[in-house]
Design a protein around this nucleic acid. Sequence first.
DNA 1: CACTCATGCACAC
DNA 2: TGTGCCTGAGTGG
Length: 330
Amino acid sequence: MPEGHSVHRIAKQFAVNFVGHRIAVSSPQGRFAADASRIDGHTMVASKAVGKQMFLEFDNDLWLRVHLGIYGAWDFAGDISIDPTIASANGRMGQTNQTGTAIPPRAILDEAGENSLHSIGAPRRTRLRMSESEKVEADIDAFPPEPVGQVRVRLLSDTAVADLRGPTACEVLDPAEVDAVIAKLGPDPQVDDGPEAEEAFVAKVRKKPTAIALLLMDQSVVSGIGNVYRAELLFRARQNPHTPGKLVPEETVRALWRDWVHLLQIGVETGQMMTMDDLDEESYRKAMAKREDRHWVYKREGLPCRVCGTHILLEELGGRKLYWCPKDQA
DNA sequence: CACTCATGCACAC
DNA sequence: TGTGCCTGAGTGG
């Protein structure tokens, strides 16, 4: 799945291309039909993400809550803003479709560096897939395109369409229910940017006997971290994954939080889980091309540690794969 | 082309 | 602890 950074990017995509529009909500697959009728025909008024969950608000005071799980994805088509970073990562801005036409960038990052997307207007045929990665695909021939495969929800405006497939959660909630969901989540640096967020994280971690590797993945302790960021954050802090939260030095817990703030920000800005610092241009190109070159330890079992040369370990913890360096994270 | 596995999580047992 | 979700990238024949 999409760890936190991708969910924030998807929420921004909805903010730019759907908020303010009246939306026809349907369920081509059928499994969401009853819920769809509760928001069908209403105007989307807000879009937000907390951790790995996304919430879309409609003008009848109901919300659509979506969690993509391990392989959920949104497919956008029509008049869709494309982040130029993604456009170039996909094909140097000059990516060509089947007819050989260049796909022009439709959005720019704003000058304030807020990395919100601004549509600068254009044709309405682009296709964009947003999941754990983002991909600009061949243009559509007609709008709206026929739903392909098991589309749980289709959100259709006058100019754009978003198809949701394979989500782990997808439901319509009232405001109190939304609050209840969010109340169970630990702090998300993109949402809770004050010092209380760090304090809440530190307090929770330092109270628990649970291994720090499990706490980082616990969405009630801190939200948005998944298996990749977990492994990378622990390596970057040179922290043993098995240390109980309460025994991790306070300074290390704070460093983990601040590093998460930092990595999440990079992820939201670039759409990539780049967890290695200060790469020269050559290494950066390699890293973008191949995941194995993008991380310190994730998916590198048996390979020499980039710092000390020790073979990276892979073990199972809490039903998930944990990658770490037994020497640097002793 | 057939098959495995994944950047979660909720639920059943 | 196991399964469903039911996709798509990656791998190996």
